[in-house]
């Protein structure tokens, strides 16, 4: 256990998240305590408006926390310089890109920006990492296509490859499965599970796919009504939190099959 603690990738202590408006603070969720170790796949689950995106933005340093601390590789997030942070955390966002007129390999190569020189020249090592990232997500066949030629599912894989090429110990994904059909949802999450094990990176993602997350993730963070629960799927199933996640008239949690059913 002691070796694991020394490797901890992401840790929060009594974290409160929310927005600041002038002098007002609007807290979205508080008391968040999570620990994420190398090779772990962690899902952040919650209904719309529960603060998933706010949490991911806070963890990636885009917005400041209201209270509490975030530690990345045991350093306080607030003390990490942006160029150092870019080597610790990589992101896959839902933000619309300016240009899809880049080839797949060019987009993946942008993941190497924190390591390249002033004009962005790629070294042999950079090229090796780029090709490795492309192999890991299995997109070699489309590597010379332009990004606007890809389907949503393919493009999501490209974005994941870009994050891998950034060579960080933590990858944060914001709803990587939206706009995807059931097969591609399962495919992308299964891919994330495989990547976390093969690369030993910690992967944290927000998702609405609670059924899939329960089957695939090592740990889940559930945000509900300003409260948070963090644990392995088995631990969470034992508690009542899953049964109370949605209004019971419509959706109930079936402990036998560990999945949600519509009444």
């Amino acid at each position: 256990m002691s070796t694991e603690i020394s490797n901890i990738v992401l840790k929060t202590e009594n974290l409160s998240i929310g927005y600041r408006k002038k002098n007002e603070q609007q807290i979205v969720a508080s008391g968040i305590n999570i620990e994420v170790y190398p090779g772990e796949l962690v899902a952040v689950i919650g209904v719309n408006g529960s603060g998933k995106s706010t949490l991911l933005k806070t963890l990636s340093g885009i917005i400041k926390s209201i209270d509490g601390e975030v530690f990345i590789d045991k350093n306080k997030l607030s003390n990490i310089e942006p160029d150092k942070l870019s080597k610790d955390v990589s992101l896959v966002l839902t933000e619309q890109m300016l240009s899809k007129n880049l080839s797949v390999i060019e987009l993946v190569a942008l993941g190497r920006q924190p390591y390249t020189n002033w004009i962005g020249r790629l070294t042999k090592n950079d090229l090796k990492k780029i090709m490795h990232a492309i192999q890991l997500v299995n997109i070699e066949d489309i590597k010379n296509k332009k990004c606007h030629e890809l389907s949503d599912g393919q493009f999501q894989k490209v974005l994941i490859a870009r994050a891998l090429a950034q060579d960080t110990s933590l990858i944060i994904l914001d709803e990587p499965t939206t706009h995807l059909d059931l097969y591609h949802k399962a495919y992308v999450l299964k891919l994330l599970q495989k990547l976390s094990k093969e690369t030993n990176k910690a992967i944290l993602f927000a998702s609405h796919e609670i059924n899939l997350a329960l089957q695939l993730c090592d740990k889940l963070l559930i945000l509900k009504d300003n409260k948070t629960l963090f644990g392995t799927p088995a631990e969470l199933i034992k508690t009542d939190v899953l049964s109370n996640l949605f209004p019971k008239q419509l959706i109930h949690f079936d402990k036998e099959s560990s999945s949600f059913k519509i009444k």
Binding site: E95, M97, W118, Q166
Partner: peptide
């Protein structure tokens, strides 16, 4: 402009990505 080439390429991904790539 030439000195900004690398950051301009980061901006192709959007501002949030660019920031996560260490662009000020």
């Amino acid at each position: 402009a030439i000195g900004s080439i690398k950051n301009l390429n980061s901006l192709l991904l959007g501002e949030q990505y660019a920031r996560s790539l260490g662009t000020n």
